[in-house]
Design a protein around this nucleic acid. Sequence first.
DNA 1: ATCCCTCGTGTAATCGATTCCACGAGGAGG
DNA 2: CCTCCTCGTGGAATCGATTACACGAGGGAT
Lengths: 344, 344
Amino acid sequence: MASIKDVAAAAGLSVATVSRVLNDHPSVSPDARTRVLAAVEALGYRPNAVARSLRTDQTRTLGLVISDVMNPYFTELARSVEEEARALGYSVIIGNADERPDLQDHHVTTLLDRRIDGLLVSPTDGGSPRMLDAARAGTPMVFVDRWIPGVDVPVVRSDGQAAVRDLVTHLHRLGHRRLAIIAGPAATTTGRERVDAFRAALREHGLELPEAYIGQGDFQAESGRRVTEGFLDLPEPPEVVFAADNLMALGALDAVRARGLRVPDDIALAAFDDIRWFVHTDPPVTAIAQPTGELGRAAVRALVDRVEGRPGESVTLPARLVVRRSCGEPDPAPPPSPVRRSTS
Amino acid sequence: MASIKDVAAAAGLSVATVSRVLNDHPSVSPDARTRVLAAVEALGYRPNAVARSLRTDQTRTLGLVISDVMNPYFTELARSVEEEARALGYSVIIGNADERPDLQDHHVTTLLDRRIDGLLVSPTDGGSPRMLDAARAGTPMVFVDRWIPGVDVPVVRSDGQAAVRDLVTHLHRLGHRRLAIIAGPAATTTGRERVDAFRAALREHGLELPEAYIGQGDFQAESGRRVTEGFLDLPEPPEVVFAADNLMALGALDAVRARGLRVPDDIALAAFDDIRWFVHTDPPVTAIAQPTGELGRAAVRALVDRVEGRPGESVTLPARLVVRRSCGEPDPAPPPSPVRRSTS
DNA sequence: ATCCCTCGTGTAATCGATTCCACGAGGAGG
DNA sequence: CCTCCTCGTGGAATCGATTACACGAGGGAT
């Protein structure tokens, strides 16, 4: 592969001049410029980003460590992150932690070894030691979706409290009183917060959240299935199951289906995180939608600010409730079927 | 950040010795080894992968350029690719082309600039010029899922022909005769092949595939919606719509729903690519499942073979039909509802 | 005792870029 | 005509690693 030396030789100039042309430095003659460009063209030369990074000590690359790529929420987040980063002239390397602390640590380590300019993290647990070291050492870093209390790093996330309250109000109005939640791992902020918000909202309606109605999940579908089975085995099963993410809702749907029960007639279901498929599930699932794309973009902007020496601020965006049929109410925007028309 | 020089100084040895310890070169004394290791520990030293790559001319990184991360099929592929690569000691940088040739070219270019050791591509169109150059220049490369005819690069893909034949047989047996397809872009192999396989299978049953029943999609949900609306507007709409990927099936579902029609009563639906959500859609969608994980792993093995100087072979794995209810037959594994039991 | 190997180590070249500094040519101003 | 700038250019140091080569010490064989 042609190097800058080959270009210099072909153009009959020094590497310094070639480099100047390539970085359009002002002081280079038009003649030299055209000769260099011609040589570049002729050789199909492309600068070696590795060498350049070594010299300039910047890779123009951001690392993104997410909890689970298979989760549509994170996929969308990753996508918007890459888009915004590209717009700002950065590349993104994604590390998938699969909700496993050891994998998270692995990815943080390799990203740091590659000397990425900044790190975007959605921590799986309390945070890998390597990550905390990096944060302390001043590596530009931003938490997205989840964060770690006590670490001085901007946080870009969405606040679901109001939406959860709306959800509980909605459920209460439908007559549901026994509400259960499939929680995320207590080690994650989102895991804790969603339970807290749910409990607080229940209290506002004079309802309790008994221990038996808090199932411990891990944000993966399988745990949603397992927890839901536990709920169904209870002497007094809940009337509603609220899954703290979309995958656990999928697992819950699996469990309900396996018993031959129906949603919402036998048990109602709601989920945190809205995804396209929820429109087409049987029944369509009521969910709390985060402004995922905006979250990803805001996180990148905050991180790039830090990388380039500007402050870089935390951002909190509101989530909102999207009512569908999985909790019992008819779809608010029913298809134009002129047959039945039930007025609530 | 501490460099190898700092470690050498701290250990009272030369950088050469430090390097030898780090790469466990045989000729280094136990004493030196312990001193180096102690210094590494004390300084929290981590080798600079950028510098190492420059010197050794290898990055231990693979590039993966996929057509669309938001498509669960590709997400799963990406995940298995990363897993296998990690097991083999490589990292993966993912580039999302979003079915756009210009983006594909952008990612190929930046990956090549970073001097990745090998490239895994699922080409969006006929292939970006940069990619073809790289292939010709001998950059280790493997096509996965889709490929480009006439380019001498191993291909790892799945063959859906038999499964499509099974699907058509299934549909025929259910009494369907007017079958339509939402095709993928003609520039992609998967786009063409699926139509060809469908047409061939129809012919085996003495059926035609009229032009009006071939809708041109682009593997994105929106195109599936648009094409399906066209089908429904036909004087004689098809009885079955076969979507060439899961996202277009989602769009088709959108279109059918918007008209207030039902699947499969009013129109049947089937899709290429099986995903978890198809179990829970209304109704569950009959689909052709690819061995996605195995595809990703095989592709990485083939690519790493090439990177490390071994041959690296093409692999073709069979897809299989998964029958659900969207074409009219009852679910083959119904939930334990002891009521109806139809023997085919 | 001499020679030769092996072993452990250090010096320095190298990878491909960027950039500081020096230098010569040419123009402007005195 | 001399001085001083500015401009375009090249030489060489540098980033942080790896590795060829050189070298001295020590042990075994003769």
